[in-house]
Design a protein around this nucleic acid. Structure first.
Lengths: 232, 232
DNA sequence: CGAGAGCTTGAGAGCTGTCAATACATGTGG
DNA sequence: CCACATGTATTGACAGCTCTCAAGCTCTCG
């Protein structure tokens, strides 16, 4: 398979770059490179200089910070067609967090110089970037809210409710599949793996969910939502 | 005092708008309005539609989220020349948080339409906005890091170290003045007022700081920094 | 089957929050 | 100038959530 031939198609799929004029996409594609990272390998490290933009094509990458004693906290999980490290790119700062592949992953890398040049010359692109940054900022605000205001149980419920695909109506029984390992999710929710496991057990005991490996059935979405509110 | 006459000068002071061409500043100024908000009054509420950009001229505004039982958590404190609510502005979403004046405050309000129009036509302005958003995102990442990885005591030390003006050398004794009421700072650090008070007392007991009202003397900055690291 | 990774469970400790009472500060009115 | 009222900050006792450590379990894969 010829990876480079796919690049223009892939660029079109990336939210950040969607709808750009063809010549721009071609110039970006010309400087793009494809890289493969195996599970648990680093994409970049905290403090490293940023040379461009990484886009996940296939697989999953987690952004994390390591503490002094070897533990790690996951900030965010980046999936296909999503980008990472924009702030380091646009501010010219080193990466504030590290990135590591959760599973074997293919990435596209767009060189910094090309991107910044196109950014300065195409205001449509700039607006797209603004929108993307604002959206990310908004998501971070929501995350921060949930850390500051919600208990562990509430955060888990909140997470489960977010994972429900839009196609389901609000009150039916639905089944969600955890997007990655439970340990990673726990860390992203700022919980230990143990605590996360216990919360899932307690919710099961209350008949609010049914856990089968990575698949979680929610018999009554409304009841789960009510339970979250009732916690104060 | 003629408030409107000051507008062009004030616009020049705002980080987000700095260095813009004069005609643009004039068009923005033409649509700007000045508003005065007294202490503990709302600037905007959570869920409200966003009609433009607020800039603090004088005073302080806190961004906060209220919980079900009446408590509130402060996300950020906005001081002079700083802006708020960009994400709601650029995404056309309702405000994700509420804003309330900490002290009597004067604000400038720039209408949404004018801003978006200028944004689309001036790529220099767009780049400035990108930089500003990226910087804010970066700051949020740091905040998130400190909530997820640091204990209460570490967060307080981290905060104190950040408050040290740059002019001081790294190791001298310095004195910092808390930028606002202790309750607000505690909330921003995701602590209760009581817990914050206890931490300050413990640090004082360890001779790491000396508290006198809102002024805190740090006899040995290096030692305080070491203490933070030593906590694991 | 064995090994390893991921997940679960248990017991105990620690950090942080809640509630309630007291001190301190600040400004107002007599 | 003092007395009071209000808001702010401190202190204490206690409970609860969440973490740590340690062991056992489950599943996948070679």
């Amino acid at each position: 398979m010829n990876a480079r031939a796919e690049v223009p198609v892939m660029i079109e799929g990336v939210a950040l770059l969607q709808g750009l004029e063809k010549p721009i996409r071609e110039r970006l594609a010309a400087e793009a490179s494809i890289l493969t990272v195996s599970r648990s390998d680093a994409v970049f490290r905290q403090g490293e200089a940023c040379a461009g933009l990484h886009v996940v094509i296939e697989g999953q990458v987690k952004l994390l910070m390591r503490t002094g004693n070897g533990h790690e906290k996951v900030f965010e999980v980046i999936g296909p067609n999503e980008t990472m490290g924009e702030t380091a790119l646009f501010l010219g700062l080193p990466y504030p967090v590290a990135a590591e592949a959760v599973v074997d992953t293919r990435l596209m890398h767009l060189a910094k110089g090309t991107l910044l040049r196109e950014l300065a010359s195409d205001s449509m692109f700039a607006l797209r970037v603004i929108e993307s940054l604002a959206r990310r900022l908004n998501r971070h605000t929501e995350d921060l809210k949930s850390y500051m205001l919600l208990s562990g149980t509430q955060r888990v419920i909140c997470f489960l409710l977010q994972e429900i695909p839009d196609v389901f109506s609000a009150t039916d029984a639905v089944e969600v599949t955890l997007p990655t390992r439970k340990g990673v999710i726990a860390s992203k929710l700022n919980l230990t793996q143990e605590h996360f496991s216990r919360i899932l057990r307690d919710l099961t005991a209350a008949s609010l969910i049914e856990v089968a490996g990575a698949r979680i059935r929610i018999p009554d979405v409304a009841r789960l939502r009510d339970y979250q509110m009732a916690q104060e």
